[in-house]
Design a protein around this nucleic acid. Structure first.
Lengths: 189, 189
DNA sequence: AATCTGATGTCAGTGACTGTCAACACGTCA
DNA sequence: TGACGTGTTGACAGTCACTGACATCAGATT
């Protein structure tokens, strides 16, 4: 064992989620999070680029999963079908997480404009990565962008419903349903 | 005339755009913007909630225009058709602005992650307002959200292309084209 | 044993943002 | 005409997010 307790990063994430839930994001300082995790404020900012990032630790892994799902779609799949495969991969990963923790995290994010802003940025990053993957599959730039962003809208709406417990269906089922709704509402009329 | 030069707010917006273009967002302090506008830093933060907001002064007007466009769509219009009417209203307003100024503003935003984040938040606010308007027209919550967010994707992509001068067509024409692309890529296959 | 490496602590500093109070030009009303 | 309310600004002190530079120390490497 090292000079300090291991997994500072994980302790910081737990401490932050707890404090944000108790007092709110604005009423919690980075120094308080660090103290609760048993480290200094400087260490907090070594692990996380800014105070919000502590809530988005798993976002890169999720992005990779989504991209892998899209890239692994059969060659014959249309753009939105490939995106659907990416959503399946995301749903599989998120479905493994404890729903109560996801709900707690979503509640903290929903309660603060700065955190909502950051969540949008993360979704935009997913969309950009998915669009780039679609382009490698031969999809045009514009269609790739539009399909990817619409897919992330589906992801967010489904995740919100699932995490809040308003729907007892599994996350992949909700996502598939929501994707069908997207197709319905964008159908020419 | 008052004790001070009028239109502090407008001078702050101009000064900020100029300084951000010259040095970049991070290398410009709020105090420098204020000095260039002939006011104090405190006055800057009386007019704008934070340093980024100075670049988004017209966003509320644009949101109202979009919402008015959606609300004014014929009763028979499908959700996405109503959104298209909102996009037309947005295009009409943005088309009035000088394209070079819009391009300059977009370049500043594109160069900075924090500003891109804020732009996403503004688009999300438009989408939420549009979705609420669609719901008043009897559209279901989910379809309203998905149609509105897809519409804002179209708005952003078209605005980017128009402002950069990569496309000589008028903004409304580009938007209509992009909306057709959205329909094509989400068509069941 | 000497050295290297990685994670952390310490400390000083910048800049975004806020609360509070005073100053002052302007309009209103007696 | 003059007292008074109102809206905008300046002045100033303060908190907190975030950064750069340097020291420290356990464990791995040689």
């Amino acid at each position: 064992m090292g000079r300090w307790e291991p997994d500072s990063r994980g302790r910081l994430q737990e401490a932050a989620l707890a404090l944000f839930s108790e007092r709110g994001f604005d009423q919690t300082t980075a120094a308080e999070i660090a103290a609760r995790a048993g480290v200094t404020e400087r260490t907090f900012f070594r692990h996380f680029a800014d105070k919000r990032e502590v809530l988005f630790g798993g976002s890169e892994v999720l992005r990779e999963r989504i991209v892998t799902g899209v890239a692994g779609a059969p060659a014959g799949h249309a753009p939105l079908e490939a995106v659907a495969d990416g959503l399946d991969a995301a749903a599989a990963m998120l479905g493994e997480a404890r729903r109560d923790l996801t709900a707690q995290r979503q509640a903290v994010i929903a309660a603060n404009p700065e955190l909502r802003e950051r969540e949008l940025a993360k979704l935009a990053a997913y969309a950009a990565a998915v669009a780039a993957t679609l382009r490698q599959r031969g999809v045009g730039e514009l269609q790739a962008t539009l399909a990817a962003e619409a897919g992330m809208s589906v992801l967010r709406a489904a995740l919100e419903r699932w995490a809040n417990g308003h729907d007892d269906r599994s996350l992949p089922v909700i996502m598939a349903d929501y994707l069908a709704e997207l197709r319905a509402v964008t159908a020419s009329s």
